[in-house]
Design a protein around this nucleic acid. Structure first.
Length: 553
RNA sequence: GGGCCCGUAGCUCAGCCAGGCAGAGCAGCGGGCUUUUAACCCGUGGGUCCCGGGUUCAAAUCCCGGCGGGCCCGCCA
């Protein structure tokens, strides 16, 4: 009884009209906009901001002919923040130069002191302080006006003289300032300002703006790619694009995305790897070929996996797996050098990763034996399975090699900190690799581990069409038996091999993972510029200001 | 698929264990300040305590159910 009353009271006392009811019809809004705007905006829970204040600011600016949406189409930039700080670092505190520069960027902080205002402006190079002094402002009415309405988050361009403040900071003494764009939303301007993990990925532009580690990882990936392209280019490699829409997916063992080409009414798969196409190109006589390939795998998302990722795959005719390990060492260590100026990378956790060549090489079986102190090399599938189960490793797979790999990942992989090549993978889990010239139970296949993460994979490429056909058939049977991922039969690929593939080495390097390891960021999503997020009802300031559009048309 | 944690102002969080007027800092707004560094000082507005139900004189707090999010563990780079 009481409960009923209480709950019904609560319901009565907290009614909320849906927001759209509060949004005025267009015509009426024009006449009464002041009233309606403040009303409708007040209902928006949108981030703090203060759309009302921002609207007022825009109206005031418009009156003065300073509406940035109307007047600001370009701004002549002559200097970058970081360059200025370096170039003028030797000025004495309080010293002023006559050097006039113009810089542009976003205001990060505004510190008003009455007669003097300090602002931090950031452009893509870094930060520079702006000083706006009352005596200078007095000579420039427009500056005086704009200054009233400046907020942190706004995009401005300034012209002024380079000085060093009494506190010793290189600054621009502002003589003129143009408001180039305003921010309607508050920006959490502290380092790591966006803490909510979901918001970080939803509004990634904020995370990239505010989180320097994320920003440098994203820029770093570009630098890594650039350096790897340089190294490959010098060796005569040709960069190509292979199809992302494929009739038969292959080159890896993974679940594909399924889609359709309407024009052909055909089901196609998004590329899970460029491998088989790149090797077709080697058959075609492009003896050194590579791709920085976006690949898609329709599998789970976790800290080290994301359904779309970027890998560099390179193939070199007349080379074997040893050559590819050397190439991998060179590509990655030179990229590290280009990025950090050293082959050693200090990480946040205090550890150092040493990319100096050559890197350690251990074969998988020896690594397992070393970790377990048990001789496993001649064990049967059943013996291996028993050992695995005793260590809590699932061992239902019919392939002995799969069990060996799992054992390795369980007992040996986490120990691999500095770059290490794990060599001699089991043959039966390597359908595109060439059997070892010394022991056909193994393949001439390696994987590269850094900081416990698998970063690269390569091998002496299988060029024997008869064996390739045989392995594809094995994979088909495996798929039926296991419903596990297996490599589909690709008859055109075998046909290409039948024309003759030279002895060839190949390597694939996971670039996001490499960047994860280098940056020390804990999730692969941190180094990917944009990732998918769950559906969201996005509230927009603009929606309540639709009437304002008319002013600009 | 199994286990653990979180949801309170625009943001970061306290309050919950042990039920009793809804709190702090930052951000916003108003005022002051000519050398600051996330400036500072004074003043001030701001709440669906995730949602629903239950227990109780009384629920942000206890119980049940749901929703949203995160982390760890098993399979794929």
């Amino acid at each position: 009884m009481y409960a009923l009353l209480a709950s019904s009271n609560r319901r009565v006392s907290s009614p909320r009209e849906p927001m759209h009811i509060l949004l005025p019809p267009f015509r009426r809004a024009r006449r009464l906009y002041c009233f309606h705007i403040s009303l409708s905006i007040a209902q928006l829970s949108v981030s703090s901001l203060n759309p009302e204040e921002t609207l007022r600011k825009l109206q005031e600016l418009a009156k003065e002919g300073l509406d940035p949406y109307v007047v600001a189409y370009r701004f002549e930039v002559t200097a970058r923040a970081e360059e200025l700080r370096k170039k003028y670092s030797l000025l004495q505190p309080g010293e002023e130069t006559g050097d006039r520069v113009s810089v542009a960027g976003r205001l990060w902080h505004v510190r008003r002191h009455g007669g003097i205002t300090f602002m931090d402006l950031r452009d893509e190079s870094g930060r520079i302080q702006l000083v706006v002094r009352k005596d200078v402002v007095a000579t420039n009415p427009r500056l005086e006006k704009v200054l009233q309405f400046l907020d942190k988050g706004d995009i401005v361009g300034v012209r002024g003289r380079v000085i060093k403040t009494k506190a010793g900071e290189v600054s621009v003494l502002v003589e003129d300032l143009e408001l180039l764009a305003i921010s309607w939303r508050p920006i959490p301007f502290h380092e790591f300002g966006v803490k909510d993990p979901e918001q970080r990925y939803r509004e990634r532009y904020l995370d990239i703006m505010l989180n320097s580690k994320v920003r440098s990882a994203i820029v770093g990936l570009y630098q890594v790619e650039r350096e790897m392209r340089r190294v490959l280019d010098e060796k005569g490699f040709v960069e190509v694009h292979t199809p992302k829409l494929q009739a038969i997916y292959g080159g890896a063992l993974a679940k594909p995305f399924v889609t359709k080409i309407n024009a052909l009414d055909r089901t196609v798969y998004l590329s899970i790897a460029p491998e088989t196409y790149l090797k077709r190109l080697v058959v075609a006589g492009l003896h050194r070929v590579y791709e920085i390939a976006v690949s898609f795998r329709n599998e789970d998302i976790d800290a080290t996996h994301y359904p779309e990722f970027v890998q560099l795959e390179a193939y070199m005719a007349f080379a074997d797996w040893n050559d590819m390990m050397s190439l991998g060492e060179e590509l990655i260590s030179e990229a590290v050098k280009a990025l950090y100026g050293s082959y050693k990378v200090e990480r946040e956790d205090g550890t150092t990763l040493d990319f100096s060549r050559p890197w350690q090489r251990v074969n998988m079986v020896e690594a397992v034996e070393e970790a377990l102190k048990v001789r496993v090399r001649d064990m049967s599938r059943e013996e291996l399975a028993e050992l695995a189960e005793s260590l809590g490793v699932e061992a239902r797979d019919p392939r002995a090699g799969k069990i060996m790999e799992k054992l390795f990942e369980k007992v040996a992989m986490p120990r691999l900190k500095n770059p290490t090549f794990v060599t001699l993978f089991p043959r039966d889990i390597s359908p595109l690799a060439r059997p070892s010239r010394e022991d056909p139970r193994y393949a001439e296949r390696f994987e590269l581990y850094i900081a416990g993460l698998e970063i690269a994979n390569g091998y002496s490429e299988l060029n024997n069409p008869v064996l390739q056909y045989h392995f594809f058939k094995e994979e088909e049977e495996l798929r039926r038996a296991l419903e596990a991922e297996s490599h589909p039969m690709d008859r055109d690929y075998v046909r290409a091999l039948e024309y003759g593939l030279p002895p060839t080495g190949g390597i694939g390097i996971g670039l996001y993972r490499l960047m994860m390891v280098l940056s020390g960021l804990p999730s692969i999503k941190d180094v990917i510029p944009f990732t998918i997020t769950s559906p969201e009802n996005v509230e927009l300031v603009s929606e309540s200001l639709e009437w304002l559009a008319r002013r600009y048309l």
